[in-house]
Design a protein around this nucleic acid. Structure first.
Length: 262
DNA sequence: GCGACAG
DNA sequence: ATCTTGTCGC
């Protein structure tokens, strides 16, 4: 006898079609340096230098979890000062499902990028840091890859927590970070049980216990990504992400206050 | 089979 | 993601 449908939510999009979409987009993924600019430390005269680094994040309403604020921030790479910020309030209809974060968060963030690019803003980022993983993902295609490919921008994935993949878990990371030969390093490569390199765990601040997790998003190598993250870290989380985080939460807070006054 | 699981 | 104050230290 046919059971009545489970009380579980029926996803508007089946998880299978999400996987298919990730597989298709992944064919366009570039995991090596592919950008026109140079790093200041390269000292090369030719080409333009990296000057504008973006950061994106979402914050949520504490009252209504479906209400979110998408945020795009751009910093001057050299001074680490904010030169651009934009916010977008949205109602989310897609739930958070581990491994499918992009289907919930990417649309708002891509819209913010398109809006900025469409207006020919001179501060449009040459590189974007994303609050979420890149290839450090069950199918090697996290939010940072998704945004990178769809916006055709170099992106770096920054995770504040480890997404367990290929045998990488807390104990393995602790073991790697604590290993004798790694104890002096500020970062270690995250090599899974299969031998694949997924990203890096980095102690961004001297003596910080909790690492951040860096992975390739799009059009950048892990080595370059690590270098850029190190150059933008005043605190544990690199400034583009940190500023997007802070200002997004700030904006959301003010909106909630106004809503109550009304 | 059960649990783990970015934000 | 969000619920939450003070507090220890440079």
């Amino acid at each position: 006898m046919e059971k009545p449908s489970e009380p579980k939510e029926e996803p508007s999009q089946s998880q299978d079609s999400w996987i298919t979409e990730q597989d298709i987009l992944r064919e366009k993924l570039v995991t090596e340096d592919s950008f026109p600019w140079k790093l200041p430390t390269t000292g090369s005269e030719e080409g333009q230098a990296l000057k504008y680094v973006g950061g994106v994040d979402l914050s949520f309403s504490k009252d209504d979890p479906s209400q979110a604020c998408g945020t795009l921030i751009v910093l001057d790479f050299h001074t680490l000062q904010v030169v651009y910020q934009d916010f977008s309030l949205v109602t989310l209809h897609v739930p958070y499902v581990p491994g499918f974060l992009a289907f919930r968060e990417a649309p708002v963030l891509l819209q913010l990028l398109e809006k900025m690019k469409g207006s020919n803003n001179p501060f449009y980022p040459q590189l974007l840091m994303v609050d979420g993983n890149g290839i450090l993902h069950p199918r090697g295609f996290g939010l940072a890859c998704h945004i990178g490919v769809e916006a055709n921008l170099p992106t770096i994935g920054i995770g504040k927590n480890l997404h367990h993949v290929d045998g990488l878990d807390h104990s393995r990371v602790r073991k790697l970070l604590g290993a004798e030969e790694n104890s002096s390093k500020d970062f270690i490569n995250l090599v899974g049980c299969s031998g694949r390199l997924w990203g890096a765990a980095m102690r961004s601040t001297q003596g910080s216990i909790k690492p951040i997790f860096i992975s390739i998003g799009h059009r950048i190598s892990l080595q370059t990504a690590i270098m850029i993250v190190q150059m933008t870290c005043k605190y544990r989380v690199p400034e583009p992400i940190r500023q997007a985080d802070i200002r997004s939460r700030d904006y959301m807070r003010k909106v909630e206050i106004n809503a109550k006054v009304k």
